[in-house]
Design a protein around this nucleic acid. Structure first.
Lengths: 242, 242
DNA sequence: GTCTATAGCCGGATAGAC
DNA sequence: GTCTATCCGGCTATAGAC
Protein backbone atom coordinates (compact mmCIF):
# COMPACT_ATOMS: atom_id res chain seq x y z
CA UNK A 1 0.00 0.00 0.00
CA UNK A 2 1.39 3.39 -0.96
CA UNK A 3 0.66 4.79 2.46
CA UNK A 4 3.41 2.73 3.97
CA UNK A 5 5.53 1.94 0.98
CA UNK A 6 8.33 4.09 2.33
CA UNK A 7 8.45 2.26 5.60
CA UNK A 8 10.66 -0.62 4.59
CA UNK A 9 12.36 -0.76 7.91
CA UNK A 10 15.88 -1.80 8.69
CA UNK A 11 14.54 -3.88 11.52
CA UNK A 12 15.66 -7.48 11.15
CA UNK A 13 14.36 -10.42 13.13
CA UNK A 14 17.94 -11.32 14.05
CA UNK A 15 18.70 -7.94 15.59
CA UNK A 16 17.82 -6.69 19.06
CA UNK A 17 15.81 -9.53 20.57
CA UNK A 18 15.02 -7.58 23.72
CA UNK A 19 15.55 -3.99 22.72
CA UNK A 20 13.20 -4.50 19.83
CA UNK A 21 10.53 -5.42 22.31
CA UNK A 22 11.04 -2.21 24.18
CA UNK A 23 10.97 -0.22 20.99
CA UNK A 24 7.80 -1.98 19.97
CA UNK A 25 6.16 -1.11 23.26
CA UNK A 26 7.15 2.54 23.11
CA UNK A 27 5.98 2.84 19.55
CA UNK A 28 2.65 1.30 20.42
CA UNK A 29 2.34 3.70 23.33
CA UNK A 30 3.00 6.65 21.04
CA UNK A 31 0.70 5.37 18.32
CA UNK A 32 -2.18 4.98 20.75
CA UNK A 33 -1.71 8.51 22.03
CA UNK A 34 -1.34 9.88 18.52
CA UNK A 35 -4.54 8.19 17.43
CA UNK A 36 -6.45 9.92 20.21
CA UNK A 37 -5.02 13.34 19.45
CA UNK A 38 -5.37 13.06 15.66
CA UNK A 39 -8.97 11.92 16.13
CA UNK A 40 -9.84 14.94 18.26
CA UNK A 41 -8.20 17.67 16.21
CA UNK A 42 -7.20 16.26 12.84
CA UNK A 43 -3.71 16.17 11.43
CA UNK A 44 -3.14 19.91 11.13
CA UNK A 45 -4.71 20.69 14.49
CA UNK A 46 -2.75 18.07 16.39
CA UNK A 47 0.36 19.23 18.20
CA UNK A 48 3.32 17.01 18.83
CA UNK A 49 3.44 18.40 22.34
CA UNK A 50 -0.08 17.13 23.00
CA UNK A 51 0.72 13.70 21.65
CA UNK A 52 3.82 13.56 23.80
CA UNK A 53 1.82 14.55 26.86
CA UNK A 54 -0.82 11.92 26.10
CA UNK A 55 1.93 9.32 25.74
CA UNK A 56 3.62 10.52 28.94
CA UNK A 57 6.86 11.22 27.12
CA UNK A 58 8.99 14.28 26.39
CA UNK A 59 8.37 15.74 22.96
CA UNK A 60 11.73 15.02 21.33
CA UNK A 61 11.27 11.36 22.17
CA UNK A 62 8.57 11.21 19.52
CA UNK A 63 11.02 12.38 16.90
CA UNK A 64 13.37 9.66 17.92
CA UNK A 65 10.81 6.98 17.08
CA UNK A 66 9.09 8.74 14.20
CA UNK A 67 10.97 10.91 11.75
CA UNK A 68 8.24 13.53 11.51
CA UNK A 69 4.68 14.36 12.40
CA UNK A 70 3.58 13.11 9.02
CA UNK A 71 5.44 9.81 9.44
CA UNK A 72 3.69 9.32 12.76
CA UNK A 73 0.35 10.08 11.16
CA UNK A 74 0.97 7.54 8.40
CA UNK A 75 1.91 4.93 10.95
CA UNK A 76 -1.37 5.55 12.75
CA UNK A 77 -3.25 5.19 9.48
CA UNK A 78 -1.43 1.96 8.64
CA UNK A 79 -2.55 0.47 11.95
CA UNK A 80 -6.11 1.50 11.28
CA UNK A 81 -6.19 0.08 7.76
CA UNK A 82 -5.01 -3.27 9.03
CA UNK A 83 -7.81 -3.39 11.58
CA UNK A 84 -10.32 -2.17 9.01
CA UNK A 85 -9.48 -4.82 6.45
CA UNK A 86 -9.61 -7.62 8.98
CA UNK A 87 -13.30 -6.89 9.56
CA UNK A 88 -14.29 -7.70 6.02
CA UNK A 89 -13.06 -11.28 6.32
CA UNK A 90 -16.36 -12.14 7.90
CA UNK A 91 -18.39 -11.62 4.77
CA UNK A 92 -18.76 -14.38 2.18
CA UNK A 93 -17.16 -16.83 4.56
CA UNK A 94 -20.75 -17.62 5.38
CA UNK A 95 -23.10 -19.19 2.89
CA UNK A 96 -26.30 -17.67 4.25
CA UNK A 97 -26.85 -14.05 3.14
CA UNK A 98 -28.73 -12.99 6.25
CA UNK A 99 -26.18 -14.54 8.58
CA UNK A 100 -23.20 -13.17 6.67
CA UNK A 101 -24.52 -9.63 6.38
CA UNK A 102 -25.73 -9.68 9.95
CA UNK A 103 -22.33 -10.76 11.17
CA UNK A 104 -20.64 -8.10 9.11
CA UNK A 105 -22.84 -5.29 10.42
CA UNK A 106 -22.32 -6.47 13.98
CA UNK A 107 -18.57 -6.60 13.45
CA UNK A 108 -18.57 -3.08 12.08
CA UNK A 109 -20.64 -1.85 15.02
CA UNK A 110 -18.21 -3.44 17.46
CA UNK A 111 -15.41 -1.66 15.66
CA UNK A 112 -17.20 1.67 16.08
CA UNK A 113 -17.70 0.92 19.75
CA UNK A 114 -14.19 -0.17 20.61
CA UNK A 115 -12.10 1.89 18.20
CA UNK A 116 -13.98 5.15 17.71
CA UNK A 117 -10.77 7.14 17.48
CA UNK A 118 -9.43 4.92 14.72
CA UNK A 119 -12.66 5.41 12.82
CA UNK A 120 -12.47 9.18 13.26
CA UNK A 121 -8.89 9.42 12.05
CA UNK A 122 -9.86 7.38 9.01
CA UNK A 123 -12.93 9.54 8.37
CA UNK A 124 -10.89 12.70 8.69
CA UNK A 125 -8.36 11.44 6.19
CA UNK A 126 -11.06 10.64 3.63
CA UNK A 127 -13.00 13.86 4.09
CA UNK A 128 -9.85 15.79 3.32
CA UNK A 129 -9.39 13.89 0.09
CA UNK A 130 -7.34 10.92 1.34
CA UNK A 131 -3.97 12.56 0.68
CA UNK A 132 -2.12 9.69 2.36
CA UNK A 133 -4.22 6.63 1.58
CA UNK A 134 -5.63 7.47 -1.84
CA UNK A 135 -3.53 4.73 -3.39
CA UNK A 136 -4.79 2.18 -0.88
CA UNK A 137 -8.39 3.09 -1.66
CA UNK A 138 -7.90 2.77 -5.42
CA UNK A 139 -5.96 -0.49 -5.19
CA UNK A 140 -6.53 -2.74 -2.20
CA UNK A 141 -9.94 -1.48 -1.15
CA UNK A 142 -11.35 -1.40 -4.68
CA UNK A 143 -10.16 -4.97 -5.28
CA UNK A 144 -11.57 -6.13 -1.97
CA UNK A 145 -14.98 -4.59 -2.63
CA UNK A 146 -15.10 -6.15 -6.08
CA UNK A 147 -14.32 -9.55 -4.62
CA UNK A 148 -16.93 -9.31 -1.90
CA UNK A 149 -19.45 -7.82 -4.30
CA UNK A 150 -19.24 -10.86 -6.51
CA UNK A 151 -20.51 -13.03 -3.69
CA UNK A 152 -23.43 -10.71 -3.04
CA UNK A 153 -24.26 -10.48 -6.73
CA UNK A 154 -24.44 -14.24 -6.81
CA UNK A 155 -26.99 -14.21 -3.98
CA UNK A 156 -29.00 -11.65 -5.91
CA UNK A 157 -28.86 -13.75 -9.07
CA UNK A 158 -30.11 -16.74 -7.08
CA UNK A 159 -33.03 -14.62 -5.82
CA UNK A 160 -31.84 -15.14 -2.27
CA UNK A 161 -32.01 -11.41 -1.62
CA UNK A 162 -33.43 -8.25 -3.15
CA UNK A 163 -31.78 -6.88 -6.30
CA UNK A 164 -29.28 -4.17 -5.48
CA UNK A 165 -25.83 -2.89 -6.34
CA UNK A 166 -23.49 -4.52 -3.79
CA UNK A 167 -21.04 -1.61 -3.91
CA UNK A 168 -23.69 0.83 -2.77
CA UNK A 169 -24.75 -1.65 -0.13
CA UNK A 170 -21.21 -1.51 1.22
CA UNK A 171 -21.21 2.28 1.19
CA UNK A 172 -24.49 2.22 3.11
CA UNK A 173 -23.31 -0.29 5.70
CA UNK A 174 -20.04 1.54 6.23
CA UNK A 175 -21.88 4.82 6.63
CA UNK A 176 -24.55 3.53 9.00
CA UNK A 177 -22.10 1.75 11.27
CA UNK A 178 -19.23 4.23 11.25
CA UNK A 179 -21.57 7.09 12.03
CA UNK A 180 -21.85 5.70 15.58
CA UNK A 181 -18.14 6.47 15.97
CA UNK A 182 -17.57 9.47 13.72
CA UNK A 183 -20.79 11.31 14.56
CA UNK A 184 -21.04 10.09 18.15
CA UNK A 185 -21.16 13.68 19.37
CA UNK A 186 -24.25 14.38 17.30
CA UNK A 187 -25.93 11.12 18.26
CA UNK A 188 -25.28 11.70 21.95
CA UNK A 189 -26.72 15.20 21.65
CA UNK A 190 -29.88 14.00 19.92
CA UNK A 191 -30.38 11.06 22.27
CA UNK A 192 -29.69 13.28 25.25
CA UNK A 193 -27.06 11.00 26.76
CA UNK A 194 -23.57 12.01 27.89
CA UNK A 195 -21.93 9.12 26.04
CA UNK A 196 -22.78 6.08 23.96
CA UNK A 197 -22.52 3.17 26.36
CA UNK A 198 -23.16 -0.53 26.05
CA UNK A 199 -26.93 -0.12 26.12
CA UNK A 200 -27.01 2.51 23.39
CA UNK A 201 -24.72 0.45 21.19
CA UNK A 202 -26.74 -2.71 21.69
CA UNK A 203 -29.92 -0.89 20.71
CA UNK A 204 -28.26 0.83 17.78
CA UNK A 205 -26.81 -2.45 16.54
CA UNK A 206 -30.20 -4.14 16.51
CA UNK A 207 -31.73 -1.21 14.64
CA UNK A 208 -29.01 -1.17 12.02
CA UNK A 209 -29.05 -4.95 11.56
CA UNK A 210 -32.82 -4.96 11.11
CA UNK A 211 -32.69 -2.02 8.72
CA UNK A 212 -29.98 -3.63 6.59
CA UNK A 213 -31.52 -7.10 6.50
CA UNK A 214 -34.99 -5.81 5.69
CA UNK A 215 -33.41 -3.45 3.17
CA UNK A 216 -31.84 -6.46 1.48
CA UNK A 217 -35.10 -8.35 1.51
CA UNK A 218 -33.88 -10.71 4.22
CA UNK A 219 -36.70 -10.62 6.74
CA UNK A 220 -36.28 -14.14 8.04
CA UNK A 221 -35.23 -14.32 11.67
CA UNK A 222 -32.02 -16.36 11.93
CA UNK A 223 -30.61 -13.62 14.16
CA UNK A 224 -27.53 -15.53 15.18
CA UNK A 225 -26.06 -13.31 17.83
CA UNK A 226 -22.34 -13.10 18.04
CA UNK A 227 -20.12 -12.67 21.05
CA UNK A 228 -19.81 -9.05 22.10
CA UNK A 229 -16.21 -9.60 23.16
CA UNK A 230 -13.72 -6.91 22.32
CA UNK A 231 -11.67 -8.01 19.33
CA UNK A 232 -8.00 -8.36 20.13
CA UNK A 233 -6.05 -5.45 18.83
CA UNK A 234 -2.75 -6.42 17.40
CA UNK A 235 -0.38 -3.56 16.91
CA UNK A 236 2.08 -4.78 14.33
CA UNK A 237 5.21 -2.86 13.36
CA UNK A 238 3.64 -1.96 10.04
CA UNK A 239 4.79 1.36 8.81
CA UNK A 240 6.09 2.54 12.13
CA UNK A 241 9.08 4.78 12.56
CA UNK A 242 9.98 5.46 8.96
CA UNK B 1 -28.22 29.04 18.47
CA UNK B 2 -25.08 29.30 20.55
CA UNK B 3 -22.91 29.02 17.47
CA UNK B 4 -23.92 32.50 16.44
CA UNK B 5 -25.08 33.96 19.70
CA UNK B 6 -22.18 36.36 19.76
CA UNK B 7 -22.91 37.68 16.33
CA UNK B 8 -25.49 40.26 17.26
CA UNK B 9 -24.38 42.63 14.59
CA UNK B 10 -24.36 46.39 14.78
CA UNK B 11 -25.82 46.46 11.32
CA UNK B 12 -29.09 48.31 11.36
CA UNK B 13 -31.66 48.28 8.61
CA UNK B 14 -31.62 52.09 8.61
CA UNK B 15 -27.90 52.28 7.89
CA UNK B 16 -26.13 51.83 4.58
CA UNK B 17 -28.93 51.01 2.19
CA UNK B 18 -26.63 50.45 -0.76
CA UNK B 19 -23.29 49.77 0.86
CA UNK B 20 -24.91 47.02 2.83
CA UNK B 21 -25.58 45.27 -0.41
CA UNK B 22 -21.95 45.45 -1.36
CA UNK B 23 -20.95 44.20 2.03
CA UNK B 24 -23.39 41.36 1.74
CA UNK B 25 -21.94 40.37 -1.61
CA UNK B 26 -18.34 40.46 -0.41
CA UNK B 27 -19.21 38.48 2.67
CA UNK B 28 -20.95 35.86 0.57
CA UNK B 29 -17.93 35.70 -1.70
CA UNK B 30 -15.64 35.16 1.27
CA UNK B 31 -17.96 32.63 2.89
CA UNK B 32 -18.12 30.55 -0.26
CA UNK B 33 -14.34 30.52 -0.56
CA UNK B 34 -13.95 29.76 3.14
CA UNK B 35 -16.33 26.82 2.90
CA UNK B 36 -14.23 25.27 0.15
CA UNK B 37 -10.97 25.72 2.03
CA UNK B 38 -12.32 24.58 5.41
CA UNK B 39 -13.81 21.51 3.70
CA UNK B 40 -10.49 20.52 2.17
CA UNK B 41 -8.22 21.01 5.17
CA UNK B 42 -10.35 21.47 8.27
CA UNK B 43 -10.28 24.50 10.53
CA UNK B 44 -6.73 24.16 11.80
CA UNK B 45 -5.31 23.29 8.42
CA UNK B 46 -6.99 26.14 6.61
CA UNK B 47 -4.93 29.26 6.04
CA UNK B 48 -6.43 32.70 5.75
CA UNK B 49 -4.11 33.32 2.79
CA UNK B 50 -5.68 30.39 0.93
CA UNK B 51 -9.19 31.60 1.64
CA UNK B 52 -8.24 35.07 0.44
CA UNK B 53 -6.77 33.64 -2.74
CA UNK B 54 -9.88 31.53 -3.35
CA UNK B 55 -12.03 34.63 -2.84
CA UNK B 56 -9.74 36.69 -5.08
CA UNK B 57 -9.08 39.20 -2.32
CA UNK B 58 -6.03 40.39 -0.35
CA UNK B 59 -5.68 38.66 2.98
CA UNK B 60 -6.28 41.63 5.30
CA UNK B 61 -9.59 42.22 3.58
CA UNK B 62 -10.89 39.09 5.26
CA UNK B 63 -10.12 40.55 8.65
CA UNK B 64 -12.05 43.64 7.73
CA UNK B 65 -15.21 41.60 7.20
CA UNK B 66 -14.61 38.93 9.81
CA UNK B 67 -12.95 39.65 13.12
CA UNK B 68 -10.95 36.44 13.17
CA UNK B 69 -10.48 33.08 11.53
CA UNK B 70 -12.75 31.53 14.12
CA UNK B 71 -15.48 34.10 13.49
CA UNK B 72 -15.30 33.32 9.79
CA UNK B 73 -15.53 29.61 10.53
CA UNK B 74 -18.59 30.13 12.71
CA UNK B 75 -20.22 32.17 10.00
CA UNK B 76 -19.63 29.35 7.53
CA UNK B 77 -21.18 26.87 9.98
CA UNK B 78 -24.20 29.12 10.54
CA UNK B 79 -24.86 29.15 6.81
CA UNK B 80 -24.61 25.39 6.65
CA UNK B 81 -26.94 24.80 9.59
CA UNK B 82 -29.59 26.96 7.98
CA UNK B 83 -29.43 24.91 4.79
CA UNK B 84 -29.37 21.68 6.75
CA UNK B 85 -32.46 22.46 8.77
CA UNK B 86 -34.41 23.54 5.73
CA UNK B 87 -34.15 20.01 4.31
CA UNK B 88 -36.08 18.44 7.16
CA UNK B 89 -39.16 20.48 6.39
CA UNK B 90 -40.07 17.89 3.82
CA UNK B 91 -40.78 15.14 6.30
CA UNK B 92 -44.12 14.82 8.02
CA UNK B 93 -45.56 17.43 5.72
CA UNK B 94 -46.65 14.41 3.74
CA UNK B 95 -49.16 11.93 5.02
CA UNK B 96 -47.83 8.88 3.20
CA UNK B 97 -44.79 7.30 4.91
CA UNK B 98 -43.20 5.99 1.71
CA UNK B 99 -43.63 9.29 -0.11
CA UNK B 100 -42.42 11.38 2.83
CA UNK B 101 -39.34 9.28 3.54
CA UNK B 102 -38.58 8.96 -0.17
CA UNK B 103 -38.75 12.71 -0.57
CA UNK B 104 -36.53 13.25 2.43
CA UNK B 105 -33.86 10.84 1.23
CA UNK B 106 -33.88 12.42 -2.23
CA UNK B 107 -33.59 15.88 -0.73
CA UNK B 108 -30.62 14.79 1.36
CA UNK B 109 -28.96 13.22 -1.68
CA UNK B 110 -29.43 16.45 -3.63
CA UNK B 111 -27.80 18.30 -0.76
CA UNK B 112 -24.81 15.96 -0.89
CA UNK B 113 -24.57 16.49 -4.62
CA UNK B 114 -24.85 20.26 -4.70
CA UNK B 115 -23.23 21.23 -1.39
CA UNK B 116 -20.57 18.61 -0.71
CA UNK B 117 -18.25 21.17 0.86
CA UNK B 118 -20.93 22.29 3.29
CA UNK B 119 -21.46 18.68 4.28
CA UNK B 120 -17.75 18.12 4.78
CA UNK B 121 -17.31 21.20 6.96
CA UNK B 122 -20.23 20.02 9.06
CA UNK B 123 -18.84 16.49 9.29
CA UNK B 124 -15.45 17.78 10.29
CA UNK B 125 -16.96 19.91 13.04
CA UNK B 126 -18.84 16.94 14.47
CA UNK B 127 -15.97 14.47 14.24
CA UNK B 128 -13.88 16.84 16.30
CA UNK B 129 -16.49 16.99 19.02
CA UNK B 130 -18.63 19.86 17.72
CA UNK B 131 -16.74 22.56 19.67
CA UNK B 132 -18.70 25.34 17.97
CA UNK B 133 -22.15 23.84 17.40
CA UNK B 134 -22.51 21.53 20.37
CA UNK B 135 -25.22 23.76 21.77
CA UNK B 136 -27.12 23.72 18.52
CA UNK B 137 -27.05 19.92 18.44
CA UNK B 138 -28.33 19.59 22.00
CA UNK B 139 -31.05 22.20 21.57
CA UNK B 140 -32.44 22.86 18.11
CA UNK B 141 -31.48 19.58 16.48
CA UNK B 142 -32.59 17.43 19.39
CA UNK B 143 -35.96 19.20 19.47
CA UNK B 144 -36.36 18.87 15.72
CA UNK B 145 -35.62 15.16 15.74
CA UNK B 146 -38.07 14.60 18.56
CA UNK B 147 -40.77 16.43 16.64
CA UNK B 148 -40.18 14.51 13.43
CA UNK B 149 -39.82 11.23 15.30
CA UNK B 150 -43.29 11.63 16.73
CA UNK B 151 -44.76 11.53 13.25
CA UNK B 152 -42.82 8.40 12.37
CA UNK B 153 -43.74 6.72 15.63
CA UNK B 154 -47.37 7.37 14.79
CA UNK B 155 -46.94 5.57 11.48
CA UNK B 156 -45.37 2.66 13.28
CA UNK B 157 -48.21 2.55 15.80
CA UNK B 158 -50.68 2.48 12.92
CA UNK B 159 -48.79 -0.46 11.41
CA UNK B 160 -48.09 1.57 8.31
CA UNK B 161 -44.40 0.74 8.49
CA UNK B 162 -42.06 -1.67 10.23
CA UNK B 163 -41.40 -1.12 13.94
CA UNK B 164 -38.21 0.85 14.50
CA UNK B 165 -36.71 3.64 16.56
CA UNK B 166 -37.17 6.79 14.45
CA UNK B 167 -34.09 8.43 15.91
CA UNK B 168 -31.86 5.65 14.67
CA UNK B 169 -33.64 5.80 11.33
CA UNK B 170 -32.58 9.45 11.12
CA UNK B 171 -29.00 8.59 12.00
CA UNK B 172 -29.02 5.94 9.28
CA UNK B 173 -30.51 8.22 6.62
CA UNK B 174 -28.12 11.02 7.46
CA UNK B 175 -25.18 8.65 7.32
CA UNK B 176 -26.16 6.94 4.08
CA UNK B 177 -26.83 10.19 2.23
CA UNK B 178 -24.05 12.35 3.62
CA UNK B 179 -21.48 9.67 2.89
CA UNK B 180 -21.84 10.53 -0.81
CA UNK B 181 -20.45 13.97 0.03
CA UNK B 182 -18.14 13.33 2.98
CA UNK B 183 -16.65 10.06 1.71
CA UNK B 184 -16.84 10.92 -1.98
CA UNK B 185 -13.12 10.28 -2.33
CA UNK B 186 -13.52 6.72 -1.11
CA UNK B 187 -16.59 6.07 -3.21
CA UNK B 188 -14.92 7.40 -6.33
CA UNK B 189 -11.91 5.19 -5.65
CA UNK B 190 -14.01 2.06 -5.21
CA UNK B 191 -16.23 2.78 -8.21
CA UNK B 192 -13.18 3.62 -10.28
CA UNK B 193 -14.52 6.97 -11.47
CA UNK B 194 -12.70 10.31 -11.33
CA UNK B 195 -15.70 12.10 -9.80
CA UNK B 196 -19.30 11.47 -8.80
CA UNK B 197 -21.33 12.93 -11.64
CA UNK B 198 -25.04 13.07 -12.37
CA UNK B 199 -25.20 9.41 -13.37
CA UNK B 200 -23.49 8.13 -10.26
CA UNK B 201 -25.69 10.26 -8.04
CA UNK B 202 -28.85 9.16 -9.78
CA UNK B 203 -27.90 5.50 -9.35
CA UNK B 204 -26.83 6.03 -5.76
CA UNK B 205 -30.06 7.85 -4.95
CA UNK B 206 -32.18 5.01 -6.26
CA UNK B 207 -30.17 2.47 -4.27
CA UNK B 208 -30.45 4.44 -1.06
CA UNK B 209 -34.16 5.14 -1.51
CA UNK B 210 -34.89 1.46 -2.13
CA UNK B 211 -32.74 0.39 0.80
CA UNK B 212 -34.45 2.81 3.17
CA UNK B 213 -38.00 2.10 2.02
CA UNK B 214 -37.52 -1.66 2.12
CA UNK B 215 -35.74 -1.27 5.43
CA UNK B 216 -38.83 0.51 6.76
CA UNK B 217 -41.12 -2.17 5.39
CA UNK B 218 -42.40 0.16 2.69
CA UNK B 219 -42.08 -1.97 -0.43
CA UNK B 220 -44.98 -0.46 -2.33
CA UNK B 221 -43.99 1.41 -5.46
CA UNK B 222 -45.35 4.95 -5.29
CA UNK B 223 -41.88 6.17 -6.30
CA UNK B 224 -42.93 9.77 -6.79
CA UNK B 225 -39.90 11.26 -8.38
CA UNK B 226 -39.07 14.79 -7.48
CA UNK B 227 -37.47 17.49 -9.59
CA UNK B 228 -33.70 17.22 -9.72
CA UNK B 229 -33.37 21.00 -9.82
CA UNK B 230 -30.69 22.56 -7.67
CA UNK B 231 -32.24 24.07 -4.56
CA UNK B 232 -31.77 27.81 -4.35
CA UNK B 233 -29.09 28.73 -1.91
CA UNK B 234 -29.82 31.74 0.16
CA UNK B 235 -26.86 33.22 1.95
CA UNK B 236 -28.32 35.28 4.75
CA UNK B 237 -26.29 37.58 7.00
CA UNK B 238 -26.66 35.14 9.87
CA UNK B 239 -23.67 35.13 12.10
CA UNK B 240 -21.43 36.92 9.68
CA UNK B 241 -18.74 39.41 10.64
CA UNK B 242 -19.12 39.67 14.39
C1' DG C 1 -12.87 50.94 2.18
C1' DT C 2 -8.55 48.69 0.36
C1' DC C 3 -4.08 46.81 0.64
C1' DT C 4 1.31 46.63 1.88
C1' DA C 5 4.34 45.65 5.27
C1' DT C 6 5.25 43.78 9.60
C1' DA C 7 4.66 42.39 14.33
C1' DG C 8 4.31 38.55 17.32
C1' DC C 9 3.26 33.96 18.36
C1' DC C 10 3.18 29.18 17.92
C1' DG C 11 4.76 24.68 16.77
C1' DG C 12 7.81 21.23 14.34
C1' DA C 13 12.26 19.84 14.32
C1' DT C 14 17.16 19.51 16.12
C1' DA C 15 21.66 20.20 18.58
C1' DG C 16 24.00 18.51 22.02
C1' DA C 17 24.42 17.44 27.14
C1' DC C 18 23.60 13.41 30.00
C1' DG D 1 18.69 5.84 24.40
C1' DT D 2 16.74 10.14 26.83
C1' DC D 3 15.62 14.87 27.35
C1' DT D 4 16.57 20.32 27.83
C1' DA D 5 17.05 24.29 25.35
C1' DT D 6 16.62 26.50 21.12
C1' DC D 7 16.17 27.49 16.26
C1' DC D 8 13.48 28.59 12.37
C1' DG D 9 9.53 28.87 9.39
C1' DG D 10 4.85 29.87 8.89
C1' DC D 11 0.61 31.80 10.13
C1' DT D 12 -2.79 35.06 12.35
C1' DA D 13 -3.62 39.52 13.10
C1' DT D 14 -2.77 44.52 12.86
C1' DA D 15 -0.72 49.06 12.02
C1' DG D 16 -0.89 52.50 8.99
C1' DA D 17 -0.32 54.42 4.08
C1' DC D 18 -3.40 55.29 0.25
Amino acid sequence: MPATASSARSERPEAAPKKGGIRRAKEAQILRAAERVFARTGFAGARMADIAAAARLPKPNLHYYFRSKRALYRAVLANILELWLAETDIIAADADPAAALGHYVRAKMRFSRFYPDASRVFANEIIHGAPEIGGFLRQELKALVERKSAAISAWVAERRMAPLDPRHLFFAIWAMTQTYADFATQIEAVLGVPALGEDEFAAATEEVVRLVLRGCGLDGAPKSRVSAARPSRRRPPVGSSG
